[in-house]
């Protein structure tokens, strides 16, 4: 089914390219080349896939517990801000101290920001969708302030408002030497992302806590009578979700930009929802979906340059994937009504 939705979306994209008078095959060829056509292009695709994977896990871990985390975007930015602040605040610290400190600060900050939505749901019954949407925009404006004329604003910065660069100790190293892939930006964040995928898998399917979270997501009342308090798990899982998103933000700072700037990583948190849905909230699925969406993003820019097809086509394709997935849920709902057990299709 995920493959069907991607194919349907690509088809819809092709129609749009045709309508606008270009050649879809040329367009898609350019896209493919841009995403995977050379070692450099592959590393560029992976650079985008890293934060997408982490943000996708953020959405998925909440989904598995029955919560819809629209807030990965805001949590990612909070993590980035925390990393940017920590990294710039103690520039003299050696990497062995500063890098973990940066990482932990981002995870805790993102987690705390996420936990607010969990707490409001558990204690006040507030729909987490509303809270996380509102939180996302709150972060954007706080970020404007911090970077334009607030405490994090870099002195004498020109151009885009930004924070001061982080210390050398907070930087994630490039893992592919220039001699092998010249100019590659692929950093050690990719290792952290793979580790996060493993942690996500281990947490959800190999620990008592993960069992409890899944039980709450699939049968909250059964979990409650067995002594698993769903409300506490909601707060906790939103902390974990925020932590993963915060880690994504930290990786963008420490691995790629070495500072925070206005308009930083826009839209990753929303793409993450599509990644989680397409990847069926599973570790491998999310990783593949993140690489796919990263390929769209990276390939899209090349497609625009080489074939003259706007890179925004990628958003159309992505939205269509989501719509087809929604339709898939409908097919399942209809099947259930006809008496097929839902579990048989899950």
């Amino acid at each position: 089914m995920p493959i069907v939705s991607v194919l349907a979306a690509l088809l819809a994209g092709a129609v749009l390219i045709l309508i606008s008078g270009s050649n879809p095959i040329r367009g898609y060829a350019a896209l493919l080349r841009g995403a995977f056509g050379s070692p450099y292009n592959i590393t560029e695709t992976l650079v985008i896939a890293v934060p997408l994977t982490l943000a996708g896990i953020s959405v998925a871990v909440a989904f598995r517990t029955g919560l819809f985390n629209i807030g990965a975007q805001g949590q990612l930015l909070v993590g980035a801000l925390a990393a940017g602040w920590t990294g710039a605040q103690f520039p003299e610290l050696p990497g062995i101290l500063l890098l973990p400190l940066t990482l932990v600060s981002a995870v805790l900050a993102g987690g705390a920001w996420g936990a607010i939505a969990g707490w409001l749901k558990a204690a006040r019954g507030v729909n987490e969708v509303i809270t996380t949407i509102m939180q996302n925009y709150t972060v954007v404006f706080v970020m404007h302030w911090l970077l334009q004329n607030g405490p994090m604003t870099a002195p004498n910065a020109a151009g885009t408002p930004a924070s001061s660069p982080i210390g050398a100790g907070a930087i994630l190293p490039i893992i592919i030497p220039n001699e092998i892939v010249p100019l590659s930006r692929l950093h050690a964040g990719v290792v952290l992302a793979i580790a996060a995928v493993v942690v996500f898998w281990f947490l959800m399917w190999r620990t008592s806590l993960g069992y409890e979270l899944r039980a709450v997501g699939l049968g909250a009342r059964a979990a409650a009578q067995a002594g698993i308090d769903p409300r506490r798990r909601m707060v906790l899982v939103m902390f974990i979700a925020g932590g993963f998103a915060g880690l994504a933000g930290m990786i963008q700072v420490s691995g790629l930009f070495h500072r925070v700037f206005d308009g930083f990583s826009a839209g990753f948190g929303f793409d993450a929802i599509a990644v989680a849905l397409l990847g069926k909230n599973s570790p491998v699925g999310i990783t593949l979906a993140a690489v796919l969406f990263a390929a769209f993003a990276r390939g899209g820019t090349i497609m625009q340059a080489d074939a003259g097809v706007s890179s925004h086509l990628v958003e159309v394709v992505e939205a269509t994937v989501l719509l087809v997935i929604a339709a898939e849920a409908i097919v399942r709902a209809l099947a259930v009504r006809r008496g097929t057990p839902a579990e048989a299709l899950a």
């Binding site: 749009l16 606008s20 819809f68 629209i70 969708v129 929303f270 929802i273 599509a274 849905l277 625009q304 706007s310 925004h312 086509l313 990628v314 958003e315 159309v316 394709v317 992505e318 939205a319 269509t320 989501l322 719509l323 997935i325 929604a326 339709a327 849920a329 409908i330 709902a333």
Partner: peptide, 30 residues
């Protein structure tokens, strides 16, 4: 999607937001 198919209204809404951004930006470029 939401009334006839009873799809998840948040997912559909998200998808349509991304779709609108994509379509308008695409056409704007073209």
């Amino acid at each position: 999607a939401s009334v006839t198919w009873r799809a998840d209204q948040i997912v559909t809404g998200m998808a349509l937001n991304i779709l609108a951004l994509g379509v308008t930006s695409y056409l704007n470029y073209e």
